[in-house]
Design a protein around this nucleic acid. Sequence first.
DNA 1: ATAATGGTGACAGACTTTGTCATCAACTCG
DNA 2: CGAGTTGATGACAAAGTCTGTCACCATTAT
Lengths: 319, 319
Amino acid sequence: MPKSKRLMELMMTVNRKRRFKVQELADEFGVSKRTILRDLQELSELGVPLYSEVGPHGGYQVVRERVLPPIAFTEGEAVAMFFAVHALRHYSSLPFEAESASALSKFYLHMPGDVRDRIDSMKDRVDFVAPTRWSDAPCLAELLDAAIKQSVLVIQYESQERGAESRRIQPVCIYANNGFWYCTAYCFNRQDYRVFRCDRIREAAYDTSGTVPMQLKDVRLSRRDASQPRDPIRLRAVLSKTGVQRCESELWLAPLLQVREDGSGVIDKDVSRDDMTFYAEFMIGLGDEVALEEPYELKEAIRTRLAALLARYEGYAAQ
Amino acid sequence: MPKSKRLMELMMTVNRKRRFKVQELADEFGVSKRTILRDLQELSELGVPLYSEVGPHGGYQVVRERVLPPIAFTEGEAVAMFFAVHALRHYSSLPFEAESASALSKFYLHMPGDVRDRIDSMKDRVDFVAPTRWSDAPCLAELLDAAIKQSVLVIQYESQERGAESRRIQPVCIYANNGFWYCTAYCFNRQDYRVFRCDRIREAAYDTSGTVPMQLKDVRLSRRDASQPRDPIRLRAVLSKTGVQRCESELWLAPLLQVREDGSGVIDKDVSRDDMTFYAEFMIGLGDEVALEEPYELKEAIRTRLAALLARYEGYAAQ
DNA sequence: ATAATGGTGACAGACTTTGTCATCAACTCG
DNA sequence: CGAGTTGATGACAAAGTCTGTCACCATTAT
């Protein structure tokens, strides 16, 4: 076998084994220990992070991260990776931040100068706008890890109403929306699914009390969909074209919205009676772009709200 | 020089040169033509797309895409790249879509099975929510290209007011915000900077009439910032903690906002008098979370607006 | 102490790569 | 056409690199 091929296979083998002895590999590849030692040194120089200990029960280890065999990317592919990572630059507390940066610098180092220029000039010409000031979500990595492994966490959650409290949860999925990270999880304290704002999770540790994880294999991202409303009431409203455009950027509304051919639209959906205050605020925000048809309760709530606001601003005027 | 090293350098050299003759490389590397020929054949087998023509003025060419020398990525880096591209999945009409996909499949192919599983399970556990229904922006690639090269385009633009019209523009930057792609550009018809919605640009072609591009080297993303208000008026308002959080997700507001230590905040900024109606709507949306201090004109505008809305909903009640 | 294990240097022999040369093929240009 | 340019391929000896063997050292667990 030519040396170059042997080196490749050796790289794959050591990545698979993680721990091994020189004699082992020598037998496997049908070469002498000396050769394997020389090869391992070369791999080391090529960037595979090897660590060795002498003595009985010693041997080689691949330390830290495993390395993929070298891959030849085209320039276009490298630029695309840059673009993707660049697009996420406004999001703070991202998982894999360090890894992205190191991957990008590897691409950057191996690039001929003209492609670097191309990328540098692209940097300032294209952008994804994200809401500013994302709050820190210190436990994001733990939450994601727990969601992947489907294990139970004990978290310190600072809810708006009750202040800090401890909860046992099993994360289902993590998602970012409009400036915040959220985590849908099964809450063992409430015995139901709940959505947590990740920046309010101050600490997260793996549960050691032996709570048995739920079988949530099929429960995935869909879990963030709203649950069925209790005490439903029918909401019907007609939206102008502008109204539709505004509603489309509201994630929670999108599934309730039917768009007509001419761009105008209709909301027709059962909603929870408890949410009247919320919908009243929202309808007020839409102003003349919405014509509410029912329920009467919502109209009433809107009028009450408007009157309260008017009083508030009348009050100011008197100051 | 060992062969392996020479092959690496050869790969970089041919990528830089794009066109070359065997004799040239032989001199450059101090080896014989025969050796270079053998090396080029090996590079070819390694995936570098080489093409050769015999005869005078013939020679070698690197065909299609240039290839970077093989890079060894760690697993973590590969996962990070997956994450980044995955996060953008909801955005339609992205540039570099094909390249991202092919880069990802290269990573995927070279990965040991357990990492694939890790990625597969991550896919369904983490998400970036983007507003739905992005309109198609068919000319995005052209716009980006023109922005990078700073060249002039002739576009067919369908404005809301005047219907379709032809414009000569020089794109400055492209950005995505809240479900739409925008392009800031210098418009030669209006002789000023304008922002175009990319989905309303039906066609784009390079200008052939010889319009001289502007010197826009220093004009970059900042161009999307609001210009100075004409007829300014001072706006001062105090925001509660909740109010601050809501404002932070409004991009245009972020620069006007000062956050205090306890999470509450202040808006204090000169704004344009023409925008009173807009600010009135916005303040109403903030409800009790904002205490407006000045200007008087805005309070008046809010009261007017509230009264109008109230009338609208009183009207409904009478239906 | 003993045995297991990695690390290094030297060197001859095995193996690979290289240079040279010869020959061919495709093509351009005058 | 014919002369010149350029790539493609095969053969083979010379040059160079890689490999196995061996001797020896260092470290460490038992």
